[in-house]
C-alpha cells in the first residue's frame, strides 16, 4: 500500500462542517429577503447606507424596519460565510494532501466571492434576473460545502467496512442523477417564484409544469434509491440514514409546496369545489405565507445537500481498488489501524 496517501488532520472536515452549518441559515435569510421583497431595502453596496458593512450601527439595524433588518443580516451572514471559506481554503491547503480536494475549496471560494458580487450587482443594477441567479448559485455553494465535508470525513477515509454485494455502481449513478435533478428542480422553483410580472400566462404555465414534473421525477428517483439501498446485502447505515431522511424531506417538501400555493392563491383550481372552503381570506405577506414559502425554499436546498451527500457516499462504496483511486479516496493511518 505504498501509493496510499494519508490524510490525518481532522481540521479540514471540522471547518467544512462549520461552513455547512453557516450556509444553511444564510440560505434561509436569503429566502426571506426574497419573500419580503427586501432585496432593495439597502440601495447601496458594498456599503450599507454609506457605512462599512461591519460598522453599520447595530442599534439602527435592530431597531430599523424588517426589510432592512433581513437584508443587512443577509449581508453580514454572507460575509461570515466568505471568511469561513477563506479559512477552509487555508486549512485544506496546509493539511490535506489531495490536490482535487484543495481545488474544490478554491472553487468554493470562487463561488462565494461571485455570490457576493452577484448579490451586490443585483442591488446596484436593481436587476431581478441577477437575483434569480444569485438565488440559484447559493444552493450550489451549499451542496459544494456538503461535498467537501463528505470527502474529508472519516467515513470517506475509512472506506467500505464490509464487502457489500449488490449493484453499488448503478446505485451511485442513480444517486448522482438524483442530486442533479434536485438542483434542476431548485432552478425550476426559482423560475416559478421569480417569474417576471411582465411574463404572460403561458410562460407561467410552462414554469409551473416544469416544477411539478421535477417534483414527480425527484419523488420517483428517491423511491428507487430507497429500494436500491435497502436491497443491498449489508445494512449500510451510511446510506440508509440519508436516504430515509431524504424520503422524509421529499414528503415534507411536496406538502410545503402545495401549502405554498394555498397560502398565496388558495385552492388550486383543480381542487376547487371539491374541497369546501370556509370563507378564508389570505393575508398578504403574513407570517403564515412567509414561513411556508421560505421553508419550502430551504427544504429544496436541504434535499440538494442530502442527495449530494448520498451520491458521494455511494461513490465511495462502489467497487474500487485501482492505483489511481488512492489519491481519490485517501486514507488515514489512524483509521486503517483501527480497522485492520
Amino acid at each position: 500500500m505504498n501509493s496510499t496517501i494519508h490524510c490525518e488532520s481532522p481540521w479540514p472536515h471540522r471547518f467544512a462542517l462549520v461552513l455547512v452549518c453557516v450556509t444553511f441559515p444564510l440560505i434561509w435569510v436569503g429566502g426571506l429577503v426574497t419573500t419580503y421583497d427586501a432585496g432593495m431595502a439597502v440601495p447601496d453596496w458594498p456599503s450599507t447606507y454609506g457605512y462599512n458593512l461591519f460598522l453599520y450601527p447595530w442599534t439602527t439595524w435592530f431597531a430599523g424596519p424588517w426589510d432592512l433588518f433581513i437584508e443587512h443580516g443577509h449581508r453580514l451572514l454572507g460575509a461570515l460565510t466568505g471568511l469561513i471559506t477563506i479559512a477552509l481554503v487555508i486549512v485544506v491547503w496546509r493539511n490535506e494532501p489531495r490536490r482535487w480536494v484543495q481545488w474544490l475549496t478554491v472553487m468554493a471560494l470562487v463561488i462565494v466571492i461571485s455570490q457576493g458580487l452577484l448579490g451586490g450587482a443585483r442591488v446596484i443594477q436593481d436587476a431581478r434576473q441577477l437575483a434569480k441567479i444569485h438565488g440559484c448559485l447559493g444552493p450550489a455553494f451549499f451542496a459544494l460545502a456538503t461535498a467537501i465535508s463528505v470527502v474529508t470525513s472519516s467515513f470517506w477515509k475509512q472506506g467500505p467496512q464490509l464487502e457489500i454485494i449488490g449493484n453499488t455502481r448503478s446505485l451511485y449513478r442513480v444517486a448522482l442523477f438524483t442530486a442533479v435533478l434536485a438542483y434542476l428542480q431548485l432552478i425550476f422553483g426559482a423560475n416559478l417564484r421569480h417569474i417576471p410580472v411582465t411574463a404572460d400566462v403561458g410562460q407561467f404555465r410552462v414554469a409551473l409544469f416544469f416544477h411539478l414534473a421535477g417534483a414527480a421525477a425527484l419523488a420517483l428517483h428517491v423511491t428507487i434509491l430507497i429500494w436500491m439501498v435497502f436491497r443491498l446485502t449489508q445494512p449500510v447505515k451510511a446510506l440508509r440514514r440519508p436516504v430515509s431522511l431524504l424520503a422524509l424531506l421529499i414528503v415534507m417538501q411536496i406538502t410545503l409546496g402545495v401549502a405554498s400555493w394555498i397560502v398565496k392563491y388558495l385552492m388550486p383550481i383543480s381542487a376547487e369545489g371539491r374541497l369546501r372552503e370556509g370563507g378564508f381570506v389570505i393575508e398578504a405577506d403574513g407570517l403564515l405565507q412567509a414561513l411556508t414559502v421560505t421553508a419550502h425554499m430551504a427544504g429544496g436546498s436541504l434535499i440538494l445537500a442530502l442527495s449530494t451527500m448520498l451520491a458521494l457516499r455511494a461513490v465511495r462504496l462502489a467497487p474500487s481498488g485501482t492505483e489511481s483511486s488512492a489519491s481519490f479516496f485517501c486514507t488515514s493511518s489512524r483509521l486503517t489501524e483501527l480497522t485492520t
Binding site: K264, L266, E277, G278, G279, F280, V281, I282, E283, A284
Partner: peptide
C-alpha cells in the same frame, strides 16, 4: 379586507 374564498388577499 381582501375577498374571501378567492386569491385576492388582505
Amino acid at each position: 379586507d381582501g375577498i374571501p374564498d378567492t386569491a385576492m388577499p388582505s
